[in-house]
Computed example of a mutant assay.
Amino acid sequence: MSRAPISETMTAPVTVGVSLGDRSYDILIGPGLVAKAGAELARRLPGVRAAIVTDANVAAHHLEAFQASLSASGVDAQPIVVAAGEKSKGFDTLQEVVSGILEARLERGDAVVALGGGVVGDLAGFAAGIVRRGMLFVQAPTSLLAQVDSSVGGKTGINTPHGKNLVGVFHQPQLVLADTDVLDTLPAREFRAGYAEMAKYGLIDRPDFFAWLEKNWQAVFDGGDARVEAIAQSCRAKAAVVARDEREAGDRALLNLGHTFGHALEAATGYDGSRLVHGEGVAIGMALAHRFSARLNLASPDDAARVEAHLSAVGLPTKLSDVPGGLPGAERLLTYIAQDKKVARGALTFVLTHGVGQSFVARDVPSSQVLAFLEESLRP
Rank of each mutant, 00 (worst) to 15 (best):
H62S: 08
A330H: 08
A283C: 08
S150K: 11
F126K: 07
I204H: 01
F170N: 02
T335A: 13
R105Q: 14
R43M: 02
E103Y: 04
V343F: 01
L145Q: 10
R189W: 00
A60V: 03
D302L: 14
V282A: 03
T353P: 05
L288T: 02
R252A: 10
L288N: 01
V18S: 01
A196H: 04
G325N: 02
A313M: 12
A211R: 13
V148G: 03
V152A: 09
F191G: 03
E86T: 07
N256Y: 10
L254G: 07
Y25G: 00
V370A: 11
A72M: 09
R108T: 11
H162Q: 13
G223P: 01
Q147R: 10
L257W: 03
T11K: 14
L145A: 11
D272F: 04
A287Y: 03
A193V: 02
K215D: 15
G163R: 00
T9H: 14
A72N: 11
Q78C: 13
V314I: 15
D251G: 07
W217N: 05
V242Q: 08
L175C: 04
K341T: 03
R105Y: 08
F66I: 05
L136M: 13
T54W: 05
F209A: 07
H310V: 06
D251L: 15
D184M: 08
K215V: 13
P380S: 15
H354T: 09
A83Y: 07
A264H: 10
V119Q: 12
G116I: 06
D181M: 00
L378R: 12
V343H: 08
F221T: 07
A330M: 04
D110S: 11
